[in-house]
Structures are given as C-alpha cells and as structure tokens.
C-alpha cells in the first residue's frame, strides 16, 4: 500500500515537472512533430489492420448471434457499429497502443536514463522531464483522435467486407444497419475516452521509463511495467468515464 502511495506521489511530481514552460517553444514544437511521426503515424498501419479484422469478426459474430426470424437483419450492422464506436475504437485500440506506444516510450526513456543521456540534459540545466515527456504527451493526445476515427471507419469497412458471404447478413442490410439510429454523441464519447487514454498511456509509460535505474534488464522491466500498469489504468478509467458520460 505504501508503495502505491510512493509511486502515485512520484508520478504527480513528475507531471509537475513535465507541465512547466518549455525552454524553447521552437524546440518543443519540433520535438512534438517528431513524436507525432514516431508515436502516431507509425501506429496507423497496426490500428488499420486490427480494426479491419475486428470489424469483420464483430459483424460475423453479430450475424451468428442474431439469427432469429423476429430480429431485423439490419440490427447486425447497427450492433457492429455501436460496438466499434463505443468500445473497440477507443478502449481496445488504446490497449493495443499501450503495448506499442507505451513500451516504446518506456524503453526509449529508460535507455536514455541508463546511458546517462537524461543526466546530460540535467547537467546542461535543461528540464529533462519537460523536454522529453511533454512532446510525447502532446503528440499522442493530439494524434489519437485521428487513429480513433480511422479505426472506426476501417472497422465498419471490415464489417461491410465480411457481410459478403456471411450467412444471415447481406451488404445491403449491413449498410442500412450502420446508417440507422446514429447518435453523434457516441463518436464524441469515443474521442473523449481516447484522449484520456492517450494521456494515461503516455504519462504512465514515461514515468516507468524516466525512473529506470540499472541496465538493460531494468529497461526491459520498465517497458513491461509500462504496458501492464497503463493497461490497468486505462481499463479503470474506461469504467469511470463510461459511468460519467453515458
């Protein structure tokens, strides 16, 4: 329990250092652009591939479970859309990105710590937490809505492709389903969740990487901890945000 308080306290102290005025705004924007490429753009492919398959599987499973003469077939498309919008494109994608981006951030910062690059920054009088972590948070929080929107679109497309040749589902029914009873708030809800999750993943992973001590083994451990803890916190906040927003 004491350990939990210790880490929570240290996490917020790190955040205090992170959210201070950057030394040079020009450097901050340049670093942020670099991070958008490293964290965001490089994640597009995996998000698209996973979304495509998950959308397809989701549609097939809906069709399988809703095979009943009294249930309208367009509900399969509708159900697929709601699943993708409400949960998959924000939460599941966030969990996938916790693995990819979280481990990337933790291992990068951890390596910088054990090779004394962070000490070198501190030595020069640079606020290393702000210089290294703030652009990552900014980039991820800024770019995750793009990934979420892509995931929604490609997930729905995956479902559409799956509707060809799936028993009990036609492409027409699917299209009718995904265009019926649309509530724009679901997209807002998904985007709010994804932004919060991006903040959690970036900060929790940065915390584990920034405070790595030791060598290569510890960098690996920091990376694992970053993924595990950020996933747990994401799921906790998924519940909290769902309770608050829906």
């Amino acid at each position: 329990m004491l350990k939990l308080f210790y880490h929570t306290g240290r996490y917020f102290l790190l955040l205090k250092r992170v959210f201070s005025r950057p030394e040079r705004w020009r450097v901050f924007f340049r670093q942020s652009l670099r991070e958008i490429e490293n964290i965001g753009i490089s994640s597009i492919t995996i998000v698209l591939i996973i979304s495509m398959f998950m959308g397809a599987v989701c549609a097939i499973q809906m069709a399988y479970n809703l095979q009943n003469p009294i249930i309208p077939r367009y509900l399969i498309g509708l159900g697929t859309r709601e699943t993708l919008l409400l949960e998959f494109s924000s939460t599941i994608v966030a969990l996938i990105l916790a693995g990819k981006v979280g481990s990337n951030i933790a291992s990068e910062l951890g390596t910088m710590r054990v090779t004394e690059q962070i000490d070198a920054l501190e030595m020069m009088g640079v606020n290393s937490a702000c210089y290294l972590v703030l652009p990552k948070i900014a980039a991820f929080v800024f770019f995750i809505p793009v990934l979420t929107i892509f995931s929604m679109a490609i997930g729905l497309l995956g479902g559409y492709i799956a509707s060809f040749g799936t028993v009990g589902l036609t492409p027409h029914d699917y299209v009718v389903g995904i265009t019926s009873f649309f509530r724009p708030f679901y997209v807002t809800y998904a985007l709010i969740k994804s932004v919060v999750f991006a903040f959690i993943i970036a900060t929790v992973a940065s915390y584990h990487g920034y405070y790595t001590s030791g060598g290569a083994l510890e960098v690996g451990k920091a990376s694992t901890h970053a993924v595990v803890y950020s996933s747990i916190v994401v799921l906790m906040f998924n519940l909290i945000l769902t309770k608050l927003l829906l």
Partner: peptide, 17 residues
C-alpha cells in the same frame, strides 16, 4: 544559471542517439 557554466563528459559519452 550556474549549470550553463558547466560541461560534462560522461563515462559512455551520453550523446543523444
């Protein structure tokens, strides 16, 4: 401020990768 008057060479170089 005083750190700007200091330079340090670390054991492994600590160059930014």
């Amino acid at each position: 401020e005083i750190r700007k008057e200091m330079g340090m060479v670390f054991q492994g170089g600590a160059l930014f990768d």
